[in-house]
Design a protein around this nucleic acid. Structure first.
Length: 423
RNA sequence: GGAGAGAUGGCAGAGUGGUCGAAUGCGGCGGUCUUGAAAACCGUUGAUCUUAACGGGUCCGGGGGUUCGAAUCCCUCUCUCUCCGCCA
């Protein structure tokens, strides 16, 4: 959520920035500012009315003590009239503020200066590439065929147990999952991130805090008996640790990492995009989350991008880093870097990480604040990134490391897998 | 699942209708003393809306009600704890 203060003081700035996200905000911003003005006027009126009531109530107390019945009764009638008036103002005010909030949540976050203009994925800017794309020759297989050949991932069995998009990992395939999770977590904790293991079901308030609710409820699995949601990403429970929190100035930086399974309904997906591991309903992911002071959040973002890059580098997968254009960014983000690895058998790029700075947009919803050096309460900045999401990493590993009828495990993973080849 | 108890400031914990945003203790911050620290002592210490400011309003788990007046009484929801049952 954008702050009212920014909208009030700098409406033209907000409108021009949202244009970068191809969002025409003028009408909404103008309505919001009118409602905000009305809100303040009503507030003032109500406060004055309540203040009078309080004074008179105290007066009555005094009269009662002195036994002045009649005087007390006279004031009582006055208060009754005031009460009716304040109820009226309150109703008006509530209606006004509901409308205001409904408009406020319609505005996406404003992109920061570095965000390139553009409408779709083609307009994203490649900021860096690394590692070589391997030559696989004629007999290369896509990962879903490799998975079958070595009997390490069983998609059909998953369909039997649950449905499409819920694969069963077997033998070395299962071991590889566990190895990757541990490798990522160790890598993150070595960089100073604190490991947490959060619940993978969250309540409604948490869903609202990070922006999944109220709009995107169709994306989450919902346990209706208890009104809990299965997490679509560890970002949700981990960021919500800081919901309604005021951090002390000396509690920064906050660096957390968590592994969770992630559950996404992905309604409406089809075709080659969902083949094999490319898009699943349940998958494993290790996430990093940071809470920073505003003046430090962009340095933190650079650090996170460099951190994720070093993981991908270590895995030896050909990669590129994209700076997303305004049109391709998420609703809540101020800037996003996507990491893609090249899948040599599918001959396409697969997204494996997304690193974003949300500035104060999430914090405003979460009421996540901190005390600055002057002791004033300010909104903090939140950031998060995948480090990494497993399925497409596995897809790329299987495809890019296939050689002579077997799959080689990258050096860095061998201490975790306990084997050098899948064959 | 059954029975009972409870929810108050960072924490502990008083407060059962009138000036209570709330005693007290701990913790935090500032100071005195000290070469420094500890101890002791003194002071200070919630959030939020509104106002140029003075000031004013709201918040004692959430929502509703009674009353001139509610942390305190009533209704309702949620959550937590204890005991029993079940159990990885």
């Amino acid at each position: 959520m954008l702050t009212l203060k920014l909208l009030r003081e700098n409406p033209e700035f907000v409108i021009s920035k949202l244009a970068v996200k191809n969002f025409d905000a003028r009408e909404i911003v103008e309505k919001i500012n009118a409602l905000d003005q009305n809100r303040r006027a009503l507030q003032l009126e109500l406060d004055t009315c309540l203040s009078e009531q309080k004074k008179k109530a105290a007066q009555i107390g005094g009269f009662m003590k002195e036994g002045k019945r009649e005087e007390a009764d006279a004031v009582k009638t006055e208060v009754t009239a005031l009460k009716a008036r304040s109820a009226e103002i309150e109703a008006k005010s509530e209606e006004n503020n509901t409308e205001l909030n409904n408009l406020l949540v319609l505005l996406p976050n404003i992109p920061c200066d570095q965000v390139p203009e553009g409408k779709c994925a083609e307009d994203n800017v490649v900021v860096k590439t690394g590692n070589e794309i391997p030559e696989l020759g004629e007999n290369k297989l896509p990962h879903w065929e490799l998975a079958k050949k070595f009997d390490i991932i069983d998609f059909d069995l998953g369909v039997k147990l649950t449905g499409a998009g819920f694969p069963v990992y077997k033998g070395k395939g299962a071991r590889l999952q566990r190895a990757l999770i541990n490798f990522f977590l160790d890598y993150n904790t070595n960089a100073g991130y604190q490991e947490v293991e959060p619940p993978i079901m969250v309540n409604e308030a948490s869903g609202f805090g990070t922006g999944q609710l109220p709009d995107k409820e169709g994306q989450m699995y919902h346990a209706t008996a208890d009104n809990f949601y299965l997490v679509p990403t560890a970002e949700v429970p981990v960021t919500n640790i800081f919901r309604d929190v005021i951090l002390a100035n000396n509690e920064f930086p906050v660096k957390m990492t968590a592994y969770t399974p992630c559950f996404r309904r992905e309604a409406g997906s089809y075709g080659k995009d969902v083949r094999g591991l490319n898009r699943l309903h349940q998958f494993d992911k290790v996430e990093i989350v940071r809470v920073e002071k505003p003046e430090e959040s962009y340095a933190a973002l650079d650090e996170m991008v460099a951190h994720v890059e070093s993981i991908v580098k270590a895995l030896g997968l050909p990669y590129r880093i994209l700076r997303l254009c305004g049109g391709d960014m998420s609703f809540t983000s101020a800037i996003t870097y996507d990491f893609e690895v090249y899948s040599a058998a599918q001959e396409r790029w697969l997204e494996i990480s997304s690193v974003s700075n949300f500035e104060s947009y999430q914090a405003n919803r979460l009421k996540l604040r901190y005390k600055d050096a002057d002791g004033k309460t300010q909104l903090a900045h939140t950031l998060n990134g995948s480090s990494l999401a497993l399925p497409r990493v596995v897809a790329a590993l299987l495809e890019n490391y296939q050689k002579d009828g077997k799959i080689e495990i990258p050096e860095v993973l061998r201490p975790y897998t306990g084997f050098d080849y899948i064959d």
